[in-house]
Design a binder for these strands. Structure first.
Length: 466
RNA sequence: GGUCCCAUCGUCUAGUGGCCUAGGACACCGGCCUCUCACGCCGGUAACACGGGUUCGAACCCCGUUGGGACUACCA
């Protein structure tokens, strides 16, 4: 059996975006599932627009998502000799020819053709002139002019194009460099790619590439064209729609497994299942079951998945993940054990790590501040006896856990005649500086006895000074 | 314009001729739980683009219409 080989070929003209990430994911999943090989290839033939920085960002994005590649990264810019070889072979076999038409002339012809309602395709002017190389010459593929060119798409089934629609495409530019179509095909041949899974914006490119395979006398790979990802306005997802860079989602506090899970479900389903960890995805993914229609990127659902994976993470994992976000907020010396205790109270209430970091601030601040509105609502002379009773009972607690606190509070309620509903708000404000927070007992347990008593005493003094 | 692709709730989707008075998930709206906020649980609103066929029977098959999208470069 032939080993399956897939590839992800980004061009380094920008960051790794959501659409690219999903294409990479599908290729990766298919390779992993089939025991195949996943190859990374950087398509940097467009020297003007390619940057090293973009390459780094793409690699970093893939690494963050955990889409590890087995071979590469290969760079097209380092393979020019290979392309040259293939082009000269084609020329020798009369499958390609030199064309001396200037870009200006071609552009003019296209315009008049368009104006007259004809197809603006190359007219084959130099096809049979048997011209040699020249300073302005490009190399074109000599395509069949009748008949059809097609392929059997893994996702969409057979797709056929009339050859009259296809013109003699340029294989080599006048400077000798290969064009995209030639480079892709040569790379896929030499890298022995068996399955090409890519965006459906390439469907129309495929017959051209098929013709190059045919001219070269090589067997076709399998093609699977996955649908595009759209923004909420149903146009192609782009910067206009906010963050589409994978790393931007990292910075917003998303977990890679949440993004991966979201992406795999965008365009693919396995019955009613929503949650897929890596292993489940690899096992259940099926390229043939990928949907055909474009999908709208929905951040709400991503947030839901993210909160799911946050809940699933252990306190220690969360503490480590949260640390960079906390440091960003200026909390430099972090006691990760303490942070872990805090995350335990926050994981049910946070949709992102960024949100969690914000919610965690009161745990880390030396002194919480009491917002005037909240003070008005919760602090009064009436609360003094409650606070005193609480402070005293808590101070006497031998065990600092939630069940001990609970029994302490039943005694406090007994003694003061107040209800928990009355006592909780002022205590919450004293401990967190907020009117909404994790459960009172949870907060005290996480804060620890010392911090709790400190904060209560400080609040008591504050109220007495009102 | 031409060619190609696509079409089920607002969104992601299940559905491959009878199981569909169309199922799940997100979001939204109610309720329960409750020390606040969440979580969780229960319930609700909400879709087969349209028109023709084929068939005893169509969300599912065929044709057309409409609507979206892609490509149409010496960009990838």
């Amino acid at each position: 059996m032939v080993k399956i080989r897939t590839r992800f070929p980004p061009s380094p003209t920008g960051y790794l975006h959501i659409g690219g990430a999903r294409t990479a994911l599908f290729n990766w999943l298919f390779a992993r599932q089939q025991g195949g090989v996943f190859i990374l290839r950087i398509e940097d033939t467009d020297q003007a627009r390619s940057t090293d920085e973009a390459t780094r960002a793409i690699l970093e994005g893939l690494e963050w998502l955990g889409l590890n590649w087995d071979e590469g990264p290969f760079f097209q810019s380092q393979r020019t000799e290979i392309y040259r070889q293939f082009i000269s072979d084609l020329l020798k076999q009369d499958k390609a020819y030199y064309c001396h038409c200037s870009p200006e002339l071609l552009e003019k012809k296209r315009e008049t053709a368009r104006a007259e309602g004809r197809k603006p395709k190359y007219d084959g002017n130099c096809r049979d002139l048997e011209l040699g190389p020249g300073p302005q010459a490009v190399v074109r593929l000599k395509n069949p002019q009748t008949g059809t060119t097609g392929f059997d798409d893994l996702i969409r089934g057979p797709i056929v194009f009339p050859n009259e629609e296809l013109d003699d495409l340029v294989l080599a530019r006048s400077d000798g460099s290969p064009t995209y179509h030639l480079a892709v095909v040569v790379d896929d041949i030499t890298m022995e790619i068996t399955h090409i899974i890519r965006g459906d914006d390439h469907i129309n490119n495929t017959p051209r590439q098929v013709q190059i395979y045919q001219a070269l006398g090589r067997p076709l790979p399998f093609y699977g064209h996955v649908p595009m990802i759209l923004g909420p306005d149903k146009t192609r997802l782009s910067k206009r729609h906010g963050a589409t860079s994978v790393l931007a989602y990292k910075d917003m506090g998303f977990l890679p497994q949440a993004l991966i899970n979201y992406l795999v479900r965008l365009g693919w389903a396995h019955g009613d299942e929503e949650i897929f960890n890596r292993e489940a995805m690899i096992q259940k993914f099926s390229i043939a079951r990928v949907g055909k229609s474009a999908g709208v990127f929905n951040q709400e659902k991503l947030l839901w998945l993210n909160s799911h994976y946050i809940k699933e993470s252990t306190d220690q994992e969360l503490a480590a993940l949260l640390a960079p976000f906390l440091r960003e907020k200026g909390f430099q010396d972090l006691d990760l054990e303490y942070v872990a205790k805090c995350t335990a109270t926050l994981k049910m209430r946070s949709k992102t790590l960024k949100e969690m970091a914000e919610a965690a601030e009161f745990y880390l601040e030396e002194e919480v501040t009491y917002p005037p509105e909240a003070v008005k609502k919760s602090f009064s002379t009436q609360t003094i006896p409650w606070m005193e009773a609480a402070t005293e009972s808590l101070a006497n607690l031998a065990e600092w856990d939630e069940s001990a606190m609970e029994s302490a509070f039943t005694r406090i309620i007994d003694r003061t005649g107040a209800t928990l509903k009355q006592i909780a708000p002022p205590l919450r404000l004293a401990l967190t500086g907020k009117t909404a927070s994790p459960g009172l007992f949870e907060v005290m347990a996480a804060l620890g006895k010392e911090r709790t008593l400190e904060r209560l005493n400080r609040a008591l003094n504050y109220i007495k000074g009102l």
